[in-house]
Write a protein that binds this DNA or RNA. Structure first.
Ligand code: DCP
Ligand code: MG
Ligand code: MG
Length: 1141
DNA sequence: ATCCTCCCCTAC
DNA sequence: TAAGGTAGGGGAGGAT
């Protein structure tokens, strides 16, 4: 403590010495929240010019508060405070004299609604240190300033401290200290100029900066590294473990001392001698509150205190950044809550549930959405100054067991944690140290055995069977030894669980923690597992446990009573069986080494804020570089590139609750399969840029971006004449190269075959025939082949694509470059040839791309015979943390490319066809006739569109679906059914090739807008709220169709559909009020127990919306889904089987 | 059946 | 302020 005070004082005096003027003499500032310039810079300025700076607020000491915005509360308490903008400081410095602060008041006219600071009226800090106010007796730091009440305690030059070998030389502060300030100007660190800009994507070095601060990135990376490390150990090890001698001795000593049958370990056969044959002994070893334990080595005085590792400084954040609307996110999560019943969380006991209400949720921790909600509630709540005011959206990576007693959990937001545990002390990350401790942990164990599976940086599984046989030690002896060694080496505690399998070992560890060990014996398993919550089972997470929950299954013994068949039906064969076995304590998995890597990816969903598409593209290049590096690191190339994007949801506020967080988003994914695996940044970047352009997202709406490579292969294989190939490309101008952003793209299936064939036929150097597309009369391979015999070499940019080949403008030369040269030539020939035979132009989209020379896409508004050029597929999924309805993926086909074909005739279920209304069937058959005659196919949407126009009628999808799914049953106890598509679904429906896509083009051609009046008409509904029979016990009841509820007078489905169809066509996007109206109508239907109608309406909407390919419509539809599910849920305690996809 | 693709889910 | 990554398992549903 003294040391700290001294340091602080030194720091201040030192800086004061440098005072260059005295303009701030008598001025003593406190900076609230984030400012520009940063508080650190303001501090420097003020100190440099004779003023004083306080790291937290004290009315006694502070003459001016500096802020750029203040939370919406407690203005009344601030009446006498001088709250000024930062430019008062800077301007004064510029002017060389103290300017009148009145000109710089943040709120010149103080009114009642003026936002106020979040601190209490009173000030407790008595001692007026120049720089810091430190009160050793002040226990409740929170009573001083809530926005700055606790900050990291190791803020005193951590570098200095850490570079010191003697930990005790580090700054020491006891937990009761109220030193809460000194958000550090670490002398050693070049912080100041770095931190003054928000870390936004696009900033120089953002990617590196982000990753270097991302705990999840770190643990992920380390996990992989350690798996690899173990692999290497196993490969290189000679099987000798000298250290085992120690264990041998230990075992021998114990036997000598205690005798075989008296220690606690008594029932454990030493050395596994009496172990059943084939039975293994598994030890699970896990560091106790890992990050905290490591961090506390530098803060021994914090031992025994509630501590959390977090980026939060401990100051409250500015709550009301301009543009934020926390209420929105609150509402969003609230809605989710309503549509997901009883979501559970690990370690949270299920509480009794009434229908769909979520009693469990309130106790649910670690859910950022809930926390956001809670924070928002606080926000709108009372003005109280206390601790609850503390606001931070920073996540807690790890918290000490003391903190856990208060309910704090890993992953929880700091704001929420501080509500549960006001004394929670935040400490900084120390990634280097974690990594070192991890290594020490692994090394310690590895000196005894290599039968290890790396689970994570703080955790591993050990198959002890051999060691124990070898040393005649008991498992607990081995555990003790390991833990002792780990503690000696790392000064951190580990706990160990021992059992006959992985599952039980993990459960045993949980029981052992903290700093303990537990051997679960086979005879105790049944009793042990019985009253474990199902969510305690590893592999049972939020979704699964909530499904189980809905089946009224909470404890393992309850789960044991569910038949295997039931579980498999509900969860799938594997998962069903897994659950069946897990709840019995059975687990036959062996500890494994990392097998072949299957994917490599990099994504960033934080700090993504763009204004220009060019920034997006630049960022993609950076990310591509990252992916490239990672591919190189694992020595792999990838053939499929997937671009994952988070997009701000249409109605979400631009400013997220969490600073620079991603907020409520739609998820889009788009992928391309290359003809040849690649590692190249340029290739990856270009592909991604092409993909992202195709998504047509407003740059400012990006919230997250990721690139994933799959279909990995070893680079050595496909790597031939690279050099020459590159030179082959060289003649093409730089401009050309840049503009050629799209690769040869066809369906994955097609490509896959193609490339495998290529590999096969490498020797003959002839392009393999391109495989037939499904559903199409084959574009004959010979055609392609023939064309390739011709010879021309020019590459022209403005070409139209052909049947199978992409347009040259879409060929990525880098990809091309990876092909064998002969093949390249053939390709080029083929393309130039094709180019001659087709007129150019006509496929350049208006606007957007037209200004970009090489960026022509497949035409979107025309479908000629190009259905076979399946392209990338874009998908949209509901917001992050998907749940139930929201999690369903939606194919929006935002990109223009996808052109869709009818399924091959033979694929049609004849019965299904027969079941269609005659007009529809005729139309469908006509479409097939057309296909047959002109070798091209009427796009499915043509059919769908028909349904659209033809209002009395149902479209194909709907009909088939209805006939299969109906009667749509209430899912009551069945909402645990897979949130995904219903198994009884029409096979047509899901057909990827059969969806959306074309509808867009069509629609564009005939935008016949039924105008506004139509919509208005639609919007007034009639509702004689006639409640027939009701709730209790009518779940099994056949929902009765009632004609009492109408939408604008439309009662039967046909009429309703007509209205809806008019509505859908009348406007580009639905207005909120319209959606609300519809929601009201649906609510009434539910009230009328007319669920059948609800389902039909929803399905109709679904189908239409899908074809609309509009995010706005999709969002509207989703809103309705959420609404309907919530209403149905509250009424019936179950959910409808509705599709969001 | 068995493959493949596109996701969701889970864990740290 | 805040750093919300990453990989594998597996289900659904289509193709073969
Ligand atoms: N949501 C999470 C969970 C974990 N971690 C990091 C910090 C943890 O210290 C480390 C190890 O995770 P554990 O699940 O092992 O948790 P702890 O080691 O912190 O606690 P314990 O193992 O004692 O339960 O991973 C994280 O950053 N975010
Ligand atoms: Mg741990
Ligand atoms: Mg762990």
């Amino acid at each position: 403590m003294q040391a700290k005070i001294q340091k602080l004082q030194e720091q201040c005096t030192k800086e004061q010495k440098q005072a260059s003027s005295n303009i701030f003499s008598g001025v003593s500032i406190f900076v609230n929240g984030y400012t520009k310039p940063t508080p650190a810079e303001l501090r420097q300025l003020v100190l440099a010019h004779g003023g004083q700076y306080h790291h937290y607020y004290s009315r006694m000491l502070v003459s001016h508060i500096v802020a750029i915005n203040l939370p919406n509360s407690k203005v009344a308490q601030l009446t006498s405070e001088k709250v000024v903008r930062p430019d008062w400081i800077t301007d004064s410095v510029s002017a060389g004299k103290l300017l009148a602060y009145q000109e710089y008041l943040l709120y010149p006219t103080v009114c009642k609604s003026q936002p106020g600071l979040t601190f209490t009226k009173h000030t407790t800090a008595p001692s007026g240190g120049v720089c810091e106010t430190i009160d050793l007796n002040q226990k409740t730091t929170r009573s001083i300033v809530t926005t700055a009440n606790v900050s990291h305690l190791d803020t005193v030059p951590t570098n200095v401290a850490q570079s010191t070998t003697n930990p005790s030389s580090r700054c020491i502060v006891t937990a009761t200290d109220t030193i809460t300030s000194v958000k550090p100007m670490d002398p050693g660190k070049a912080r100041p100029s770095k931190t003054d800009m928000p870390a936004k994507a696009g900033d120089r070095n953002f990617v590196a900066e982000f990753y270097s601060n991302s705990r999840l990135h770190h643990i992920s990376t380390w996990g992989a590294e350690l798996k690899d490390y173990v692999k290497q150990l196993q490969k290189k090890g000679d099987g000798s473990f000298p250290m085992r001698e120690k264990l041998c001795k230990m075992a021998a000593n114990t036997r000598a001392e205690v005798g075989v049958s008296t220690n606690r370990d008594t029932r454990t056969p030493p050395g596994g001698m009496s172990r059943t044959k084939g039975q293994r002994t598994i030890m699970h070893l896990d560091m106790d509150s890992f990050f905290v334990s490591v961090g506390l080595r530098n803060h021994p005085h914090l031992q025994g205190k509630p501590v959390a590792v977090t980026h939060s400084s401990g100051k409250g954040a500015a709550r009301n950044r301009p543009g934020t609307n926390i209420e929105y996110e609150r509402a969003y999560w609230q809605k989710k809550r309503d549509s997901v019943r009883g979501r559970g969380r690990k370690g949270v006991q299920y509480m009794h549930r009434q229908v769909c209400e979520e009693s469990g949720v309130d106790t649910e921790e670690g859910e950022d959405e809930d926390i956001e909600a809670i924070q928002a509630e606080n926000q709108s709540g009372r003005l109280g100054m206390s601790n609850e005011e503390f606001f931070s959206m920073a996540e807690i990576a790890s918290c000490s067991y003391e903190a856990r007693q208060a309910g704090v959990k890993n992953g929880m937001l700091m704001g929420e944690a501080r509500r549960l545990c006001p004394d929670l002390v935040p400490i900084h990350y120390d990634f280097d140290a974690y990594r070192e401790v991890s290594q020490a942990l692994y090394d310690a164990v590895a000196s005894y055995t290599h039968d290890i599976e790396a689970v994570s940086c703080d955790e591993m599984l050990i198959d002890c069977t051999d060691v124990l046989v070898d040393t005649s030690a008991t498992p607990l002896q081995f555990a003790s030894l390991l833990r002792r060694e780990i503690r000696e080496k790392t000064q951190c505690n580990a706990s160990a669980g021992i059992a006959e399998n992985i599952l039980l070992a993990k459960l045993a560890t949980r029981k052992a923690k903290p700093n303990g060990q537990f051997h679960l014996l086979p005879e105790d398993v049944a009793e042990f597992i019985k009253d474990k919550s199902v969510s305690d089972l590893p592999g049972v997470g939020r979704t699964t446990s909530s499904k189980l929950h809905a089946m009224n299954v909470h404890m393992c013994d309850q789960l044991q009573r569910v038949a295997m068949a039931t579980l498999q039906k509900e969860f799938g064969p594997k998962t069903g069986q897994l659950l069946y076995r897990l709840c019995r304590g059975e687990d036959s998995r062996c500890i494994t080494v990392e097998r072949e890597r299957k994917s490599v990816s990099a994504e960033i969903n934080y700090g993504i804020r763009f204004t220009q598409m060019s920034e997006v593209e630049k960022f993609l290049e950076e990310l591509a570089g990252e992916v490239h590096n990672r591919l190189v690191k694992v020595d792999r190339k990838g053939k499929q590139i997937t671009l994952k994007v988070k997009v701000r949801r249409q109605d979400a506020p631009r400013e997220t609750a969490k600073f620079l967080g991603h907020g409520v988003c739609d998820n889009l994914a788009k992928s391309v399969t290359l003809p040849v695996a690649t590692q190249e940044v340029r290739v990856i970047a270009k592909q991604c840029i092409t993909l992202v352009r195709g998504m047509r997202i407003t740059p400012s709406d990006f919230r997250g971006i990721g690139i994933q490579m799959t279909h990995l292969e070893a680079p050595s294989v496909g790597k031939q004449s690279n050099q020459t190939l590159l030179s082959f490309v060289t003649p093409v101008t730089q401009k050309d190269i840049c503009s050629m952003t799209t690769s040869v793209s066809t369906t994955s299936a097609v490509i896959k075959t193609t490339s495998s064939l290529m590999a096969h036929q490498k020797t003959c150097r002839i392009l393999p025939p391109l495989p037939k597309l499904p559903n199409l009369s084959s574009p004959p391979a010979q055609v392609v082949h023939t064309r390739m015999q011709q010879d021309t070499m020019e590459v022209n940019n403005d070409v139209v694509d052909d049947w199978l080949l992409p347009s040259p403008s879409q060929v990525d030369l880098d990809v091309l470059a990876e092909l064998p040269e002969d093949i390249q030539r053939q390709l080029q020939k083929a393309m130039t040839d094709r180019q001659r035979s087709r007129p150019p132009g006509g496929n350049i989209l208006p606007g957007h791309d037209s200004d970009q020379p090489g960026c022509s896409h497949w035409p979107s508004d025309q479908h000629d015979d190009r259905e076979d050029i399946p392209v990338e597929v874009t998908r949209v999924t509901g917001g992050e943390r998907s749940s139930k309805a929201e999690s369903e993926s939606v194919d929006l086909r935002l990109n223009l490319q996808p052109i869709v074909a009818l399924p091959s005739y033979s694929q049609l279920d004849p019965g299904c066809l027969a079941a269609l209304p005659s007009e529809l069937r005729e139309e469908l058959e006509h479409a097939y006739d057309q296909e047959r005659s002109k070798r091209s196919v009427a796009p499915l949407t043509a059919v769908a569109t028909t349904g659209d126009k033809d209002d009395g009628q149902t479209g194909l999808t709907e009909v088939t679906e209805m006939s299969h799914v109906y009667p749509l049953r209430l899912e009551q106890a069945k909402s645990y059914n897979s949130p995904r598509k219903s198994p009884a679904k029409s096979p047509r429906r899901g057909a990827k090739a059969g969806r959306g896509g074309v509808g867009r083009g069509r629609r564009r051609h005939s935008p016949k807008k039924l105008q506004y009046d139509t919509r208005q008409k639609t919007i007034e509904a009639v509702s004689p709220q006639k409640v027939t029979g009701s709730s209790g016990g009518d779940k099994d009841r056949e929902p009765s169709v009632s004609d009492a509820v109408s939408l604008c007078g439309a009662v039967d489905f046909g009429a309703v559909k007509l209205l809806l169809s008019q509505w859908l066509q009348s406007c580009h996007s639905p207005t909120e009020s319209d959606v609300e109206w519809l929601a009201t109508y649906l609510t009434r239907l539910v009230g009328d127990l007319n669920l059948e109608m609800v389902v039909m309406v929803m399905k109709y909407l679904h189908r239409q919306v899908k074809m609309k390919e509009s995010r706005q419509w999709m969002t509207g539809y989703r809103t309705l889904i959420d609404h309907v599910q919530a209403v149905v849920c509250s009424r019936y305690g179950g959910m409808l089987k509705l599709q969001v996809t």
